[in-house]
Each structure stands twice: as C-alpha cells, then as structure tokens.
Amino acid sequence: MKLSILDQSPIFYGETEGDALQSSKELAVLADRLGYTRYGVTEHHDLEHVACPAPEVLLSYIGAHTEEIRLGAGAILLPHYQPYKVAEVFHTLATLFPGRIDLGLGRAPGGSAEATTALSPRFLEEVRKMPEKVEELLRFLNHDFPKDHMFHSVEARPVPNQRPEPWLLGTGKKSALLAAEYNMSYAFGYFMSDHDGRELLNTYRINFVGERPYTILAVSVICSETTARADELAHWTHVVNEARTKGEKALISVEEAKRVSLPKYKTKLISGTFEAVKQKLMTLEEKYEPDELMITTIMPNREERLTSYQLLGEAIEKE
C-alpha cells in the first residue's frame, strides 16, 4: 500500500497558527522516517482553522528538516498566479531539494469571496484560462516554448537538475481531462467530493496521452488505538465540519463536541483501529485502483494526529 500525506496545517484546539506550522514540520519529519512516499501541503486563505496560505514557504522549511520524502503543494491554486512566477518558485525548491519536489495544481479559490478578490480580482476569468495557464506553466518548467513564441528565450531560473513533478488535484471531469491531455498525474479529492470518482479516474486513464497514467486517491482518515476513541474523534470531525458550514466557531474540544447531537450522516471519512482502517483502505484500492493513497487527517490535537499517521506508517515499514 503506497501512502502519502496531504497536510492542511490545521490549527488545533488551544493552539496558535505558529503552533500549527510547527506541527506540520513535526509530522513531515515523522513521515520521512516512516517511509511515506510524499508530503503535500494545501493552500488556503484567511481561514481560522488552517494556517498555510503559502505552501512554497512552508515546504522550504520542511525540506530543511527532512531527507528523502517527496515534498509538494497539494495544490497551488493556479488561477491566482502567473505561471512564470510559479515555475521560478518551484524550480528554486527543486534546486534546493533535488529529486524531491512535486508541483500539485488546483483551480479552487481557497478562501472566502473577499479573500479571493484580494488575491485575484478577475478570478473567474482566470479559472476559464486554466488550460492555457497549465500549458504555459509546463512549458516554463520544461523550457520548450516554440521558437516563434514571445517567451521562447525566457527561462525560469534557477534551473534544477530534476524538474518538479507536476500533478493536478481535482474532483470533476474537466480536471481529469486536463491532467490527461498534459501528461500529468491526477489526484482525485475523494474526501471532498460528492462524486463516486471511478468514472473520473477512468476518464483520465482512457484519455491519457503519455506512456503511463498515474492516479492518487486523496482520502480522509482517522486511525486510533481503540474503536471507541476513533468514534469520538469521528464525531468531533463531523461537529466541526457542520459548524464551519454554518460559519460558527469550529475550534472546539472533543469534550465540547460530545455535547452536540447530530442527525445520522453519510460520510466518506474512514475511521477506526488500524486493522479496521487498513481493511477499508484495501477496499478502496480494489474499487478505484489508484497508484497511491494520499491521507489527510484532521484531529483536535497534534498528539493524536501523529498517532494516526504513525499507526499507518508503521504498516508501511512492515510490508
């Protein structure tokens, strides 16, 4: 089972944004030691419960404290930025950490309407340009503009010996087709999509223009030492998510969450002891046939988040 991590840099109950960024570094060091394949950092803007609006900055810090694990954005929200600048940033990272840098791309706004406008006043127009921006970015990474193109002589420096590995994070047909057209790996955001996803992954595979398509399934997981604690943490997660959708206070303790009753809900969250989680992940593998599972885990505290990833990571070492 090939496992990776998608880190949203959550702010834990009773902690600060600075604590959250340090927790991301701490988790990356653990993941590096346990043999996780890659470590992706998400991009969000002006949200009270997550701490990283600039993945490239956090990745440089994490890179200095890790040795082998691949590092990347999951994902840079390309409509906000010029492709040339993104290429320069990730070429710099790839120069600092050779053979370890990924460049995940997405098209979501990553924050409120006001924050989105502050970043990109013509965001919807830039979203419509996503295919063109992806092509331009890939050409800057590869330095292969046609000779008659205005950017033919422009290079995104520094030039690394191994370029960043691009992939696309998405939940819809457009992203699947775009990844296939440009010979990119495709990560399906299973945990944040109402779609089943199998049709999208098959669409990507069928339309892929390169030698071998590569798929990643991004899944939300809570792994605990007991079923009872896993159930409490899963309930906390649903209470917090419900509060966020209503714009209410979301940074609460497990004890506070226990006092909140919720109607029966359908969820894609996978929770339980290691054996239970492993069986559920194996079922997902059989159903979706991904090349890799990317795990995201939101907990009320850093200790239990580390435990969750450690329980899964120790299984990697045993295989």
Rank of each mutant, 00 (worst) to 15 (best):
M1F: 08
I5Q: 06
P10F: 03
L21Q: 13
Q22G: 00
A28E: 05
T37P: 00
G40N: 04
G40H: 08
H49E: 04
H49P: 00
P53M: 05
P55T: 15
P55C: 09
G63D: 15
A64I: 04
H65T: 08
L77A: 10
L93T: 14
T95M: 03
D102T: 13
D102Y: 12
G104H: 08
G110C: 02
G111A: 01
A113M: 07
E114F: 07
F123K: 01
E125D: 15
E126T: 13
V134Y: 02
E135A: 15
R139V: 14
N142L: 06
H149S: 10
V154C: 12
A156C: 10
E165T: 15
P166S: 05
L168H: 06
L169C: 05
S175I: 00
L178A: 09
E181C: 02
S185K: 13
A187R: 14
F188D: 06
H195D: 11
G197P: 05
E199H: 13
R205V: 01
Y214K: 14
V219L: 00
I222Q: 06
H238I: 07
H238D: 10
V240I: 12
T245L: 14
Y265E: 07
Y265R: 13
L269W: 03
T273D: 07
T273C: 02
A276G: 03
K280G: 01
K287M: 10
D291T: 12
E292P: 01
Y309G: 06
L312G: 05
I316C: 04
K318Y: 04
